[in-house]
Design a protein around this nucleic acid. Structure first.
Lengths: 341, 341
DNA sequence: CTGAAAGCGCTAACAT
DNA sequence: ATGTTAGCGCTTTCAG
């Protein structure tokens, strides 16, 4: 626990002024090579680590990026955060994590703007904000970027929800399914636009295939694997149950598969199931899905934030591709009921 | 993006000196109630948020806690981080997140001590460090606490790995299983003590039950659900395969279940499977397991760090309880092969 | 109870 | 190329 060593100590040991030491350590031009070497050597010897607070104060920046997330224990968020943290680490920026747990934490965050003066930029991961919240956020006075959702006109990365939904539903249609159920999951904390896009894709795909839309086949439940299980139960209770089910996320799809198994039904023999995400357990449980690059979205958001800080131009909207991954949970319906396309 | 407002602005508006404004805002004694109210009102009007860097510089603290994790996309880490972040938020501390991805990132972290001067305490989540790393860490000069592993003599929270392992294996033994396989998962990034404890429990449980230890029944694979799948394949290839399998984590257990299903075997009819964790998907897939409180471990670590900062006494070792959760993946062996206990 | 002044550790003109 | 001088925004003695 030896006492903190300052720039002054380094300067003294290197026999230069603090100013020169500072210049040498921050690789400024106009520093004699020999001097620079002497200073670095002194710094190394003393295990000197500059105080970012002090240099930030003097320079007017913090060296930190604030990252705001609504969840941490869900796959997408963890993966996105991994991508983001790797990019920030590479750039030598610190990551300040703000988790908006319940409604109260969320209200407090936007009311108290804790990120103010603490970060050079704010990255929002996977959740939308209302106009009032956006206004508050903008008062923090730093750049804003987001991944997985759009925040006003600020730069953002995400997938095309509509395309992802079409990839999933079109796959089921191609297999010959005509009676396709959809499990919509809502999460008050999340981006309201996400379920919308994925649900609209379902309706559009059915319409394009000439399949009549049956509202009974759409079940909405709050986000959670248990929700998926319950929703599947409801679909099975229908007088004419679906031969295939499209869930908005893999975790929910896995819940549905669980219910089917317990009901003694075969997947995909009796019912096909597809999700969206390509959660690590999807590969394991042989779940067909639409893969989305979560870590890449986080990384791209990080790069955009860094670019904005560097004054470089930033794409306002980056869309990353999704990919249909066909595994063993989807197959043609047992008795092919080909529609009159 | 209105210009940053400083303490000086607040002081001016409240017609007091910056010193008094500072005292009033930090709820010091010896400030007239009227003055205090005037200052707070001014601060509110200007949406003043103090610069933690400046006040930290002056006061000698940072208001931040550094949290170091080896992974983010795995359940335990996300959950622990959630518990930790909630506690820190409550206490008004900021959370600085350091993720040690690959070996290079890890080396850099310990070599460059980026947490130095940036945080008032360091919390290590779920991984052990070697002596050299610990020495470096201690040079950061702030308190250290850990969850999920022990770091020298620093305070830590965790479960009793040995007890957790016994709960799982004893359950299988109680059901009448005598030929029990174990899937050990190693992760170079993680605490080497963890697999040790869980594996030792297996051997001890078998010994106590008078079951001879067959080395062929222990398979070691690197951490990953796929690892679990492969390991199960190997166990199935044995001339006398196990009737039950104990996996060190649920994610791995689920991989094993996948392999069994693909092989056309029934769980638990043909083979019982149990894991450790109580991962959210365990409930869903009806996996028996030993539940461990991940979020609580993170929260406890946070509280310990805060207590240490406050100069309060801190328990050096906190052990949280685990709990056997019996679900549908475990049952008595088909042909009960009672041992000669 | 309040103000003036010094300083936290560093950087950025401004000199030389 | 290097040293000197001001602060960055806040807290904190030390005086009143």
């Amino acid at each position: 626990m030896h006492e903190a060593v300052n720039l002054a100590d380094v300067a003294r040991l290197a026999k230069v002024s603090p100013a020169t030491a500072s210049r040498a350590l921050s690789d400024h031009p106009h520093v004699a090579a020999a001097t620079r070497a002497r200073v670095w050597e002194a710094a190394r010897a003393l295990e000197y680590v500059a105080s970012p607070d002090a240099s930030g104060l003097a320079r007017g920046t913090t060296g930190r990026i604030a990252v705001v997330v609504p969840h941490l224990a869900r796959w997408w968020f963890g993966a996105a955060l991994e991508g983001l943290s790797a990019v920030l680490r590479e750039a030598g920026r610190d990551l300040l994590l703000y988790r908006l747990g319940d409604a109260e934490a969320r209200r407090a965050f936007f009311a108290e703007l804790p990120a103010r003066r603490r970060a050079d930029a704010v990255v929002l991961l996977g959740f939308g904000v209302d106009d009032a919240e956006r206004a508050r956020l903008e008062r923090i006075g730093v750049g804003i970027v987001s991944a997985g959702t759009r925040i006003g006109r600020h730069p953002s990365v995400s997938i095309d929800e509509h395309v992802a939904g079409r990839q999933a539903v079109d796959h089921l249609l191609h297999l010959g399914h005509r009676r396709i159920g959809m499990i919509v999951t809502t999460d008050p904390e999340l981006d309201p636009g996400q379920p919308e896009g994925r649900a609209a894709a379902y309706r559009a795909a059915l319409a394009d295939a000439g399949v009549a839309h049956d509202p009974a086949l759409t079940v909405t439940v709050p986000w959670s694997p248990e929700g998926g299980a319950r929703a599947m139960g409801q679909l099975l209770g229908l007088s004419d149950p679906p031969t295939a089910v499209y869930a908005h996320t893999d975790e929910v799809a896995l819940g549905a598969v669980g219910t089917l198994r317990r009901a003694g039904l075969k997947v995909p023999g009796d019912v096909s199931v597809i999700g969206i995400d390509d959660h690590p357990l999807a590969a394991l449980t042989d779940l067909s899905t639409v893969a989305q690059p979560a870590a890449e979205q986080g990384a791209a958001a990080g790069r955009m934030a860094l670019a904005a800080l560097a004054g470089e131009p930033v794409d306002p909207v980056v869309t990353l591709p999704t990919r249909l991954v066909i595994r063993g949970s989807t197959a043609p319906p047992a008795r092919a009921e080909r529609g009159v396309s």
